[in-house]
């Protein structure tokens, strides 16, 4: 037996893999395929499905009613990524420019909120942003800065604030890592070759930190596009994203095939994005 295993390491590998692999095959891959199949079936009258093949669900996805939500979700995710980058890059730069000791403490401080419950962090913003009883409007009104409450809640603004807050740390981390890897003698070399501070940043630091920027953007964009909790809480039932439309198909509308089609489309878009990212980083690594 031992001899056999020794001669066939692949068998050893599959023995190690089989418990987890089997589990994921049954409880992840099989569900994935069922969703795929469901997305081509018709809805039953009282929930459930009718086993009849159709493209109808995918046609409906492009119905302006739903497709606009897709576009809005993408728009919100892009803005979230943009603001995360805007806030995150200087923050990463700030952390990278500290002494090693402060730096690791700051990184810890950066990640602590990220490891607390997402729901709680979203709720925190609910208490701040709510239109009439939110802390920000209450404070501004009592200080006389504004005469009427600002529309801070139940719109895209609230969702974007919640998402930026939730995902800022994962934007900062890869950018920090890229800045930290940067060889300081490159900056000296640029200075030596007559570059000003601004030129050093534009010609040396920024291009070399770009892989971190791209990685951070991916890490923010993908979960932002698929968000469900943030729009559910901060969207106030008025501003929805694709994740909420999907969940409605299961919780309210009982249209499972359509919900399946929507989520298949969402997953496909994300996978394409991820694959594109991996391919471009692999290529960049091969070039380097």
């Amino acid at each position: 037996m031992q001899q056999f295993l020794r001669r066939h390491p692949a068998v050893q590998a599959w023995l190690l893999l089989s418990p987890g692999g089997l589990f994921l095959s049954v409880f992840f891959i099989a569900p994935l395929f069922i969703v795929l199949i469901y997305s081509f079936l018709q809805r039953g009258t009282y929930g459930g499905v009718v086993w009849q093949f159709t493209f109808e669900n995918f046609r409906r996805v492009f119905d302006p009613l739903y497709f606009n939500t897709f576009l809005r979700s993408a728009y919100i995710a892009i803005l979230t990524t943009f603001f995360c980058l805007l806030l995150g890059y200087p923050l990463a730069y700030f952390i990278a420019s500290r002494s090693p000791r402060t730096r690791s403490l700051m990184l810890l401080a950066l990640m602590i909120p990220f490891w607390t419950n997402f729901l709680i962090r979203t709720y925190a913003w609910l208490t701040l942003l709510r239109t009439n009883t939110g802390l920000i409007n209450t404070a501004l009104l009592s200080l006389g800065v504004i005469a009427a409450p600002l529309p801070l809640f139940g719109n895209d603004f609230a969702i974007i604030v919640g998402l930026v807050y939730g995902w800022l740390p994962v934007m900062v981390l890869p950018i920090y890592a890229a800045l930290d890897r940067l060889d300081p003698s490159l900056i000296e070399a640029a200075r030596d070759l007559y570059a000003s501070s601004a030129q050093v940043f534009r010609r040396v630091i920024w291009p070399l930190s770009l892989p971190g920027v791209v990685a951070g953007s991916m890490l923010v964009f993908i979960p932002a596009l698929g968000s469900f909790v943030t729009p559910a809480i901060l969207g106030g039932g008025k501003s929805l994203m694709i994740g909420n439309i999907i969940s409605n198909q299961f919780l309210a509308a009982h249209d499972w095939p359509f919900g399946s089609a929507l989520s298949m489309l969402m997953m496909t878009l994300m996978l394409l994005g991820t694959l594109y990212y991996f391919r471009s980083t692999l290529k960049a690594e091969a070039d380097a």
Binding site: L24, F27, F28, P31, I34, G226, G243, M267
Partner: peptide, 18 residues
């Protein structure tokens, strides 16, 4: 890697149907 990449809402409805 897939369970890490795909959004939890997609994984949730996959499991619900399953």
């Amino acid at each position: 890697y897939l369970p890490i990449i795909i959004p939890d809402i997609a994984m949730a409805i996959m499991l619900l149907i399953f």
